[in-house]
């Protein structure tokens, strides 16, 4: 697990907290996580920052029983691939009863605690999703 106190985590905070990605205004495609090169237009692309509206739907999901490091206290938890309304997809937690989550479910983003680093007791935050 990368340390959440290092620059690698903190420098992406605007993106993690506020779902800021990019858009290629040449072809219209949105990217989250942000990309600096559009795979369609490559060097002809024009990349601009874009703040996602945070609404989307569950493409697929799993309920994690053997947790990732730092997530022990939340187990079991739902992880999903969420297709945002803008057309790009990301991986994130969906906060709801594991029995409720399903493919096609509409969700919206919320700002939440992601996990914690047990050694330092550091809590780190980011975007999760809740049912609409």
């Amino acid at each position: 697990m990368i340390s959440m106190t290092v620059a690698r985590f903190w420098r992406m905070i605007p993106n993690r907290y506020n779902l800021i990605g990019t858009q290629c205004t040449n072809c219209g495609q949105y990217y989250f996580p942000p990309r600096k090169i559009c795979p369609t237009c490559r060097r002809d692309g024009k990349i601009e920052e874009y703040k996602f509206k945070g609404k989307g739907e569950v493409v697929t999901y799993t309920v994690i029983h053997t947790p990732a490091k730092g997530y022990d206290q939340q187990t079991p938890y739902n992880i999903a691939i969420i297709k945002l309304d803008e057309g790009t997809s990301l991986t994130g937690q969906v906060i709801c009863d594991p029995k409720e989550i399903q493919i096609g479910m509409k969700v919206r983003s919320v700002f939440r605690k992601l996990g914690e680093e047990s050694e330092r007791g550091m809590i780190y935050y980011g975007t999760k999703f809740v049912p609409e």
Binding site: I2, T60, I64, T66, P67, A68, G70, Y71, Q93
Partner: peptide, 24 residues
Amino acid sequence: REWEGIVGATFPGLYAMIARLHMH
């Protein structure tokens, strides 16, 4: 690591999502 691992997705979890959609 930065966009799958950090949000709590494990390696089996990612393949589980492939399986879930394959079943669906």
